[in-house]
């Protein structure tokens, strides 16, 4: 597929707010991305015109009830068929922050046995009980299943900001060990919070900004084509977005966030 032919849909509803910077990241790589209101795609039923679907950050429908819950249910009822097909054909679905919450609430992540009826995990309130906007380190854990991180070596450490109040990834207590084992067996674990030197956070604040189970920051589905993460790669795309760029002798062109967007585009171009 030619780069110019890639079609990206950045879906939004009332309360979505990271669509513009997400589009900018694709544009930077020469890929056209459309920001589309969910009302429009539900009406026109043209989701399958796109190759990449992004659920960006924000507070969809105010995140009333629980972060991502309303939109998660809504996409299942209004876009369920198309979304299933989109996934079956191996097209790419990315959820950033609120988007990750939506994918989990909709049962797309983790998909141990396909889309689940009810959520198998949750993104609960941060242990600090407040909103956290800070830069954190992530360790890449994936052995190659995740399409979105192909540009990153396993064990590599990357730098990105988080900004959320509900980002503590958890499994139901009784299934914790079983589900974690499955994540490992299926190569679904993608990012874990770690410190500057790459040592896992082990829940320690603020290295882990939210106290997530097993320091989990992002996971993909069993096929590696659906991926969600709490940190914001679109805010770590350029060197000047880094929190310490003024300390460096030269401003980097790109930040680590760009690696995710490059991985997606690479994959589609090679396909």
């Amino acid at each position: 597929m030619k780069k110019e032919d890639i079609k990206v849909c950045i879906l939004r509803v009332g309360g979505t707010n990271c669509d513009a910077e997400t589009r900018r990241a694709f544009n930077e790589l020469g890929v056209v991305a459309n920001v589309v209101h969910a009302n429009k795609i539900i009406k026109e039923k043209n989701l399958l015109d796109y190759d990449i679907l992004v659920f960006p950050g924000g507070f969809s429908y105010g995140d009333y009830v629980r972060a991502g819950a309303i939109w998660g249910k809504r996409i299942k009822t209004k876009l369920g068929y198309e979304l299933r097909k989109f996934d079956e054909e191996g097209r790419l679905v990315l959820g950033i922050c609120n988007g990750f919450q939506v994918l989990v609430e909709a049962g797309l992540l983790p998909d141990f046995e396909g889309f689940s009826e009810s959520p198998k995990a949750a993104l609960a309130s941060n242990t600090s009980i407040k909103y956290e906007c800070r830069w954190i380190y992530l360790k890449h854990e994936n052995s190659g299943n995740c399409i979105f991180t192909k540009r990153i070596q396993k064990g590599e450490r990357i730098f990105m900001p988080v900004a959320h109040a509900e980002g503590r990834f958890i499994f139901p207590k009784k299934n914790e060990n079983e589900y974690l084992k499955r994540l490992y067996c299926n190569d679904q674990l993608v990012f874990r919070y770690c410190d500057e030197k790459g040592k896992y956070a082990a829940g320690k604040y603020p290295i882990s900004p939210n106290g997530a189970f097993h320091d989990i920051a992002g996971i993909c589905n069993t096929d590696g084509n659906v991926f969600g993460l709490m940190p914001h790669p679109e805010r770590a795309c350029y060197g000047w977005q880094l929190p310490d760029w003024t300390e460096q002798s030269q401003i980097l062109r790109y930040g680590d966030g760009m690696l995710l967007f490059e991985s997606m585009v690479d994959y589609l171009v090679k396909r």
């Binding site: 910077e21 950050g57 956290e132 906007c133 914001h232 000047w240 310490d244």
Partner: peptide
């Protein structure tokens, strides 16, 4: 300061809090 999102829109060049 960290309970306010100061990064959204992705255009904050100099943050209220500097570096490490």
């Amino acid at each position: 300061i960290r309970t306010y999102d100061h990064e959204v829109q992705g255009n904050t060049v100099l943050k209220p809090l500097q570096g490490k």
